[in-house]
C-alpha cells in the first residue's frame, strides 16, 4: 500500500532522513519509532504528500491522497478553538466530496458511526475545547476515520495523555485495525506500546536503522538497545 524506495527528505537542502526502504502491506500495523528529531514526523509528511522526497520515491498503491485518515499532533491554537465535537468529526468527510456546500445524510451517518465505534457518541453535542485531552484525541481519531477506509496515519496519538488514557487510546487503534482492516502507520516514542501492538517496526535515526517484524526487532541489536535505554529512562524517572 505504501512503498518507499531509497527515499530521503530534506529541509532547505539539509537531509533530515535518508535511505528509506520499506513496504507497508494492506491491513498492516506499522510503528515508526526513534528519538526526537530522528525524522519521524518528516516521513509522515512525506507519505501524506505534504513534502516531496528529496531523492528516491514514495509510492501509494491503490490510494489517492483524499483517502488517508490523518491524526496530526495538536497545535496550541486548537486546544482553545470554539468548535462543536460534531463539527470537528464531520470535517473529516470534506476531503473526498468536492465542492458541494452541504454535508449529506450519508456524511452525517458516517460521522456518527465512527463516534460510536470509539465510544464517544455521548460527546456529540459538547464543545471541543471543554473536553479532556484524551477525549479530544478520540474526537480527532473519529475525524480521521471519517476520511478513510484504507490508511490511518497517526502522529504521536498519545502525546500528553496520562498512562491509563494512553492504553485506552492504543486499544482503540488496535481494535480499528483488527475490525476494519484499515492499515495503521503510527509515529510513537512509546517503544513499549509500539512493540506490544505493532506488527512491523521502522526505527529511524536520520536513516533507516531497522525495518521488519516486531519479534525480530525486539531481538535485534538496535531494538534491544532502544528498549533497554527507554526502560532505564523510565526507571530513572520513577
Amino acid at each position: 500500500m505504501v512503498i518507499c524506495r531509497n527515499a530521503s527528505f530534506a529541509y532547505d537542502g539539509g537531509a533530515v532522513v535518508s535511505s528509506l526502504n520499506f513496504t507497508v502491506e494492506s491491513g498492516d500495523y506499522l510503528c515508526i519509532v526513534g528519538e526526537n528529531g530522528s525524522g519521524k514526523s518528516t516521513l509522515v509528511k512525506g507519505i501524506l504528500g505534504l513534502m516531496s522526497p528529496f531523492g528516491g520515491e514514495v509510492e501509494l498503491c491503490g490510494l489517492s491522497l483524499c483517502e488517508i485518515g490523518y491524526l496530526p499532533q495538536q497545535t496550541a491554537a486548537q486546544k482553545d478553538f470554539p468548535a462543536g465535537v460534531f463539527e470537528v468529526v464531520l470535517s473529516g468527510r470534506l476531503g473526498g466530496r468536492g465542492l458541494k456546500p452541504l454535508f449529506s445524510r450519508a456524511d452525517k451517518a458516517e460521522a456518527e458511526g465512527n463516534m460510536r465505534r470509539l465510544g464517544i457518541e455521548h460527546l456529540k453535542r459538547r464543545c471541543y475545547r471543554e473536553l479532556s485531552g484524551g477525549q479530544q484525541q478520540l474526537v480527532l481519531l473519529a475525524r480521521a476515520l471519517c476520511a478513510t477506509r484504507k490508511l490511518l496515519l497517526l502522529d504521536e496519538p498519545a502525546a500528553g495523555l496520562d498512562p491509563v488514557i494512553t492504553q485506552e487510546m492504543y486499544a482503540h487503534i488496535e481494535k480499528v485495525n483488527r475490525e476494519t482492516g484499515i492499515t495503521v502507520i503510527m509515529v510513537s516514542h512509546d517503544i513499549r506500546s509500539a512493540v506490544k501492538y505493532a506488527r512491523h517496526i521502522l526505527h529511524l535515526k536520520n536513516t533507516q536503522m531497522f525495518f521488519g517484524e516486531t519479534p525480530d526487532y525486539v531481538r535485534s541489536a538496535v531494538g534491544a538497545a532502544f528498549l533497554g535505554a527507554s526502560g532505564d529512562a523510565e526507571h530513572g524517572e520513577g
Binding site: 496530526p72 470534506l94 473526498g96 496515519l153
Partner: peptide
Amino acid sequence: SFARATGL
C-alpha cells in the same frame, strides 16, 4: 495540516 493531508 489535516485539511491538506485529506486532499483539501
